[in-house]
Design a binder for these strands. Structure first.
Lengths: 334, 334
DNA sequence: ATCGGCATTGCAAACGCGTGCAAGCCTGCC
DNA sequence: GGCAGGCTTGCACGCGTTTGCAATGCCGAT
């Protein structure tokens, strides 16, 4: 097998009878090439099967076209939906996504960012985890742009996209009391993410305003199993709640399943439930969960828009998006 | 803002008082450097914040460390689980995943592979879609390795990983008759993927062997909604089935929901159901679906093992894996 | 006929790195 | 002391691009 595997611009140039610069310019939008040479170059390139080497191009231009997505729990519905949207829209903008999975091991975000730097990614998008402030500074120092989605850190420099979690919490609280619920509860995870805590805060605040106090329990991570455990804990209490806002749809699904199958409760008659994220399963007829839709498409759109800006227009920027309430039948009335 | 943003090996060399080759060798495993210079280089690199430029390294070595994952429907549970496993294991093997989303538009797989070639990816892993034979040859001609997962194409050259879909189909058929079911059915999508058709084929074959004939319906893609539609069609028939094997867990979930909530059937008493993939929702207590587990971890392990082999050991290779049957309560008995 | 201006093209220098080759150094042995 | 041999190290070239600069050619205007 010949080790000469890729065809270079040089060879295309020779075949087309032009200089290497000509073929380079042919593949550079906006460069000055006459129509005739362009045509000859394109033909030669086609015949030889030439493809611009983006590694070399990135080396020259100091811009690789690579955007690193740093993410954990990819297999989770909300995360994968966001991932779908981001890759899709990045691609349409002519960029390409490099995926870094930080599931296992501590310090994996840090190692991930190192990888991003090694490949000279133009930017990193952080979808999970709390990168050290030192790490993000490393990022910025190395000329990377940084966007934090639902991280809400007080970092300097990057684009920050967040949701109006507080307000969402408040809206659900009023919905519950309007449905005639008496004993409100909030089911949270122990993760303590700013967005999760924001929902809790908003819910508690509005409940207080309406003169109700709230049972709060936190357990595990934000998954289905944790929802079941939380149901166990809350539904065996003497002051059993009749309305619970789960910080996450996955929690809500687990909670509902336990409520129905282990405690025989019917929803929404005996128990009102709400979630957050609007994952696909929330619309399944076993759940019909009223919840807040993450504006994944908008999130993605804002990040690629910001990443496509020229350097000087891309200063620090903070965007707050609205999560839309989608009504289904897990709360009475509506 | 200074445009001089990255620190190069040259600068590290100057700071450490050695030649540029020395620092290069320091970061090249197996190269010959004395302990003392190595130490000085590492210190200088640390101080300056040096990171090897993988673009340039890839240019020299003719091997970028990049593996392209070509995928559609990322937000689907099975796909995202496979993606998680692949990125995880690739990372552990020192490679990095580039994600190409082929959701929209025809020919997008082809364009995706072009991108892969431009970035000189060492390999492409195709998780969905049927690339043109010409395209895959282009891939191979450009020195890329290719692995096809559950594609079952008769392509030459790449690694092919498939499941024993036929056998799985057969096992479910026998399980159904053993549970006393009389009217078997197979719910499939119109996608016509080899793996889906394999499950159907195996199911039909074994059913025939056991002296039963099977109702087959195909509709839409392999999602939840399609499952509901299939239930509508099948459960309104005069010869309503009492056991249906759904080609996919998502189909099965939709089917179960429709069967219960629209037709008031109880599972497994009046209707036995089985699925395929073992997505997370299959274990949720609203479904408790008996299904076949995709060996995602093994699939990922085999691909990275094959990709890590030296070129000469990586000839054409076809692997057939076993999908393990996980029993839950959507079939009587067990 | 001369000249200015413009579009096109080639030359060559980068970009940051790996690596073969030869020179240099050190050690051990005769 | 001389020499063989091995480990280090520096030099310089090459990887496939992009791009500034200068040269070329063409056109119309004076």
């Amino acid at each position: 097998m010949s080790s000469k595997v890729f065809v270079s611009a040089q060879e295309v140039a020779e075949r087309a009878g032009v200089s290497r610069s000509a073929v380079s310019r042919t593949f550079t939008p906006g460069a000055s090439v006459s129509a005739s040479t362009r045509k000859r170059v394109l033909e030669a390139a086609e015949e030889l099967g030439y493809h611009v080497n983006h590694l070399a191009r990135g080396l020259m231009r100091n811009e690789s076209g690579i955007v690193c997505l740093i993410i954990s729990d990819v297999a989770t519905p909300y995360r994968s939906a966001l991932l779908r949207e981001l890759t899709q829209q990045l691609q349409n903008a002519g960029k390409i996504a490099m995926l870094i999975n930080t599931d296992r091991s501590d310090g994996s975000v840090d190692r991930a960012l190192q990888q991003a730097i090694r490949y000279r990614a133009d930017a990193s998008v952080i979808l999970s985890g709390h990168p050290d402030k030192s790490i993000t500074q490393l990022c910025l120092r190395n000329g990377q742009r940084l966007v934090l989605i639902n991280r809400d850190d007080d970092q300097l420099g990057p684009l920050k996209i967040n949701l109006d979690d507080d307000e969402s919490g408040g809206r659900i609280a009023t919905a519950f009391v309007r449905a005639g619920c008496r004993k409100l509860a909030f089911a949270n995870s122990e993760a303590g993410t700013p967005s999760l805590m924001g929902r809790e805060r908003g819910f508690l605040a509005m409940a207080a305003e309406l003169g109700m106090n709230v049972i709060v329990e936190r357990y595990g991570w934000t998954g289905y199993e944790a929802g079941k455990v939380l149901a166990q804990r809350m539904l065996t209490r003497s002051d059993r709640p009749d309305a619970v806002f789960c910080a996450t749809d996955l929690l809500a699904c687990g909670f509902m399943d336990a409520a129905r199958h282990q405690f025989g409760l019917s929803i929404p008659e005996q128990l009102c439930i709400a979630g957050f994220d609007d994952i696909e399963q929330a619309s399944w007829s076993s759940y019909n969960l009223t919840t807040f839709a993450q504006p994944v498409s908008q999130i993605a759109a804002h990040t690629v828009e910001w990443l496509s800006r020229p350097q000087e227009d891309a200063g620090e920027h903070s965007i707050k998006l609205k999560a839309e309430l989608v009504w289904r039948s897990s709360i009475r009335g509506g």
